[in-house]
C-alpha cells in the first residue's frame, strides 16, 4: 500500500507544475499507469481524494489510463503484447526480451479551466 505516498508525489509534482505554468484551478489529472507498475488504481484514487483537500488540487479528479505490457524481442526484434506476464517471444520463443511499456507511472496531462494562463503582471 504505497499508493498514499504515490498520491502525495502526484500532488507535489502537479502543485509545482501549477506554479511554474501559472495554471488556473486544475479539474483533472491524467495519469498513465502501466500494468507492471504495481499500482492499484482504486487505492491511488482513494489516497488522492484523502490528501487533496487544502491543496490546489482540491477540485481535481484523477483520470487513469492503464498501459498494457508490451515487449521487444532482443533476438528477432518482434514487438508483442505480453499476456499473463509471459515474457517469451511468441515468434522465436526467446526469453531475451526487453520491456517496452507497462512500467509507466506518469502524469500525462492536466485539465484546467480556460483560459489556463493567468495574466502575469510582470509581463505587462
Amino acid at each position: 500500500m504505497h499508493e498514499l505516498s504515490i498520491a502525495s508525489s502526484i500532488i507535489e509534482t502537479v502543485t509545482r507544475e501549477i506554479q511554474e505554468k501559472k495554471l488556473d484551478a486544475v479539474q483533472a489529472v491524467g495519469l498513465r499507469i502501466g500494468e507492471l507498475s504495481g499500482i492499484l488504481p482504486d487505492a491511488l484514487e482513494f489516497g488522492f481524494d484523502a490528501l487533496k483537500s487544502d491543496t490546489p488540487l482540491a477540485q481535481a479528479e484523477l483520470v487513469i489510463e492503464i498501459v498494457p505490457v508490451t515487449a521487444v524481442c532482443s533476438e528477432c526484434k518482434h514487438e508483442f503484447k505480453v499476456e499473463e506476464f509471459v515474457f517469451i517471444c511468441p515468434q522465436c520463443q526467446s526469453s531475451a526480451v526487453e520491456t517496452y511499456s507497462g512500467q509507466e507511472l506518469e502524469i500525462a496531462w492536466l485539465e484546467t479551466e480556460s483560459p489556463h494562463r493567468k495574466i502575469d503582471e510582470t509581463e505587462i
Binding site: 509534482t13 491524467g30 502524469i107 492536466l110 485539465e111 484546467t112
Partner: peptide, 16 residues
Amino acid sequence: MAEKVAVEKKVLSEND
C-alpha cells in the same frame, strides 16, 4: 471550457 495542458512527467522523477 476546459483545456488540456501536457505535462509528461514521471511521478517518481524526484526519487529517480
